Amino acid sequence: MTSATSLLTCLQLSDSAFPSGFYTMSHGLEGFSQARLVVRDDLEELARGMLRHSVGPADATALARAHDAVRVGDWERVVEVDSLLHASKLNTEMRKASVRSGHQLTDVALQAFGGPELARWSEMVTTKATPGCQPVAAAVVHASRGVGVEEAVVSDLSAFAASFLGAALRLRLTDHVHAQVLLHRLAPEIAEVATSAVERELDDMGGFVPMADVVSAQHERAPARLFAC
Score class of each variant (00 low, 15 high):
C133R: 03
S158D: 12
S14C: 09
A217E: 00
E199P: 06
D175V: 08
R120I: 11
C229N: 12
S216H: 05
A161N: 10
H219E: 08
D59V: 03
R71S: 13
L171I: 00
A4K: 06
S196K: 12
S122L: 10
V78W: 07
F18A: 14
H184E: 15
L37Y: 11
K96H: 07
L105N: 02
G49K: 02
Q12G: 10
T61I: 09
S33L: 12
V70N: 08
V147P: 09
T174A: 08
A138L: 09
M205V: 02
Q104E: 06
G207Y: 03
M1T: 09
L165K: 05
L202C: 08
A4G: 00
P57W: 00
Y23L: 14
A162I: 05
V193N: 07
E220D: 07
M50I: 14
V136F: 10
V149E: 13
R95P: 01
R225M: 02
D82V: 02
K89Q: 07
A69F: 01
L110R: 15
V72N: 03
A112I: 10
G21F: 08
A64E: 05
H184A: 15
A58R: 05
P131W: 01
S6K: 01
A112L: 15
D42A: 01
A62P: 09
L182V: 13
Q111L: 14
L226N: 08
H103V: 10
N91G: 10
E199H: 10
W75M: 04
M50K: 11
W75Y: 00
E44C: 11
A152M: 13
G28M: 11
E151T: 09
A109Y: 12
M1F: 06
C10E: 11
S122T: 10
T130H: 08
V55Y: 05
S163N: 08
V141C: 12
A212K: 05
V108I: 15
A139G: 00
S122N: 13
A217P: 03
M25S: 14
P223D: 13
R36W: 11
H27I: 02
E123G: 13
T130F: 11
E93R: 02
E201H: 13
V214I: 02
S122H: 15
E30R: 06
S26C: 10
L46G: 11
G31A: 02
R36K: 14
D82A: 06
S26L: 05
M25I: 12
A62Y: 04
E93C: 03
V215P: 01
P116E: 10
C229W: 12
V38E: 10
M94S: 03
H27V: 00
S16R: 13
T9L: 14
G49V: 00
L182T: 11
G56F: 02
L182K: 08
A191L: 06
D42L: 09
R52A: 12
S14P: 06
R36I: 04
S158L: 11
L183N: 12
L51V: 11
A167V: 03
Q180W: 14
C229I: 04
L84M: 04
W75D: 06
T106L: 08
S98D: 07
A35I: 09
P188D: 14
I190Q: 07
G31V: 07
A222P: 02
G56C: 05
D74C: 04
V78G: 09
V81N: 08
A62N: 04
H184T: 15
